[in-house]
């Protein structure tokens, strides 16, 4: 179910990765994502995979927990793979009517799948190992220079905090509404596309109403607790760079260099 998505969830811990400054983790994740698109052959993916495996091992987050997040996204991955297998032109090795499979298609599909999997696990590592509040604080600080040109960095960070906080609540709410309408005989699984879209109305309207109610309640609760924007606010846990962050920075630079170099290792195929 949708509740199984680990993206955006936090896994409490005190590992080396957990203790890094949120800013370091945000930048490292961005670097990692970029590197996945630089990679163009098997060796590059191997290096990226090993790198990620090391991070997972250091983070002490159970592998099972991470992979649960993948099951929901599996469908997207399969879809991408299938499209790539059948739609790529090249040396044909199998053919049936208009369908054909090519060597190029297979390798491209494989790369695509690996890239997506690494991308999703890589970015969920960031959220799994960083408290949401640190993540948003980190983002706020990284965006701070841009507030000079009018970017509301505090507000963006706060919006993220609230979004992360209310994702599980809204998921639960959605689940409840779906079940309540199913109990009234609603059918979301059959019919043509128009019927299916129409069948979402009994879910979407109550969900909108609930969201507005939550927003209203939350706004009152925040005001009651003296929230008045970012100015004059302090933080319980100020985020600071430590030696670990310097080490992480060096590691990431080296990693990026190796990834770029991997492009020149002769391809396996």
């Amino acid at each position: 179910m949708i509740r199984d998505i680990t993206l955006g969830q936090y896994y409490p811990g005190k590992s080396v990765i957990h203790r890094l400054d949120a800013r370091t983790k945000i930048i490292a994740t961005l670097v990692y994502i970029v590197s996945l698109f630089i990679v163009n052959n098997f060796w590059g993916f191997l290096i990226a995979g090993v790198g990620l495996a090391v991070v997972i091992a250091l983070s002490k987050v159970p592998v099972k927990f991470i992979f649960r997040g993948l099951t929901a996204i599996f469908i997207i991955i399969i879809f991408t793979v299938v499209i790539n297998i059948f739609m790529t032109e090249g040396r044909i090795i199998w053919q049936w009517k208009f369908l054909h499979i090519t060597v190029e298609g297979l390798s491209r599909a494989g790369f695509m799948a690996v890239r997506l999997v690494l991308l999703i696990i890589g970015s969920s590592m960031m959220t799994l190992c960083t408290k949401p509040i640190e993540l948003t604080d980190g983002l706020e600080k990284l965006l701070k220079p841009l507030s000079k040109i009018g970017l509301p960095s505090h507000e963006i960070a706060l919006m993220m905090t609230i979004a992360l906080r209310f994702i599980p609540t809204l998921m639960e709410e959605t689940d409840k509404i779906i079940k309540a309408q199913q109990a009234r005989g609603a059918d979301f699984e059959s019919g043509n596309i128009i019927q299916r879209v129409k069948s979402l109305i009994p879910i979407l309207i109550p969900l909108f109403v609930s969201s507005f109610r939550i927003a209203q309640d939350l706004a009152l609760a925040m005001e009651a607790r003296c929230y008045h924007g970012g100015s004059g606010r302090t933080r319980m846990n100020e985020i600071h760079f430590h030696r670990g962050d310097a080490v992480a920075a060096v590691v990431m630079v080296l990693f990026l260099a190796v990834i770029i170099a991997s492009r020149y290792i002769p391809a396996l195929f």
């Binding site: 309540a180 309408q181 109990a183 009234r184 005989g185 609603a186 109403v209």
Partner: peptide
């Protein structure tokens, strides 16, 4: 028939009659 907790949160139609008719229509 199952009535959930706070069932009023599942109402969605424009009128009471239409909302009550949702189940029988299904």
């Amino acid at each position: 028939g199952l009535v959930f907790q706070y069932p009023e949160y599942q109402l969605f139609e424009e009128t009471v009659a239409k909302d009550v008719a949702f189940g029988p229509r299904n």
